[in-house]
């Protein structure tokens, strides 16, 4: 008697699947699309890669799930655990530290009452330290999600930045409620 193969409901939304497939013609091998595919997954799933999508991404690219997992864990930008809807990454490499990055990091942790690896109870914010972002001449720098950098910051700029992000989140929530 042979067991029926387990049927797993697809979790990749059709639009995401199409976005990944649209990258195929750029490369001689589908595997080359893996990093792009994982970026697209994070764009779709609020900044992280849920475990359930990994087998599907692998199948789409003709890979085994382990091929995808080891890539997820190798690269700093891929999150295998949930992050806040606004994930703030502070560069703490040398040029940024020389211009006050540690104070920025500490102030963020205090203001948001969150440590690296944690998410605020409302799911809105998380913080992390990153290596050099290439903004050394405009240090210190924060990157929110995968957006354009916030550069030349001081601790005094943080309340304004957080207000801006909170307003944006509230607008997103209001838009969702209308739907």
């Amino acid at each position: 008697m042979t067991a029926e193969p387990a049927v797993v409901a697809p979790v990749l939304p059709a639009a995401l699947r199409e976005r990944i497939v649209a990258e195929f013609p750029k490369y001689p091998e589908k595997r080359a699309v893996l990093l792009s595919a994982l970026h697209f997954v994070q764009d779709t799933f609020e900044g992280w890669i849920p475990q359930a999508v990994v087998p599907e991404v692998a199948a789409l690219l003709g890979l085994k799930p382990i091929d995808v997992w080891e890539v997820i864990h190798f690269y700093a930008m891929f999150n295998s655990e949930p992050v806040g809807r606004c994930h703030l990454r502070v560069c703490t490499n040398l040029s940024c530290c020389l211009r006050g990055a540690r104070g920025i990091m500490r102030r963020l942790e205090e203001t948001l009452a969150v440590r690296p690896g944690e998410v605020t109870p409302d799911g809105n914010f998380s913080v992390g330290e990153v290596e050099c972002l290439g903004s050394c001449g405009t240090a210190p720098v924060i990157q929110v999600n995968n957006e354009r950098y916030r550069e030349g910051l001081s601790e005094d700029d943080l309340p304004g930045l957080l207000d801006e992000l909170r307003t944006r989140l509230a607008e997103q929530d209001a838009a969702k409620d209308e739907e």
Partner: peptide, 10 residues
């Protein structure tokens, strides 16, 4: 020319 994104690894 194709522009390819890395994902954070020196």
């Amino acid at each position: 020319v194709y522009v390819h994104r890395g994902a954070g690894a020196y």
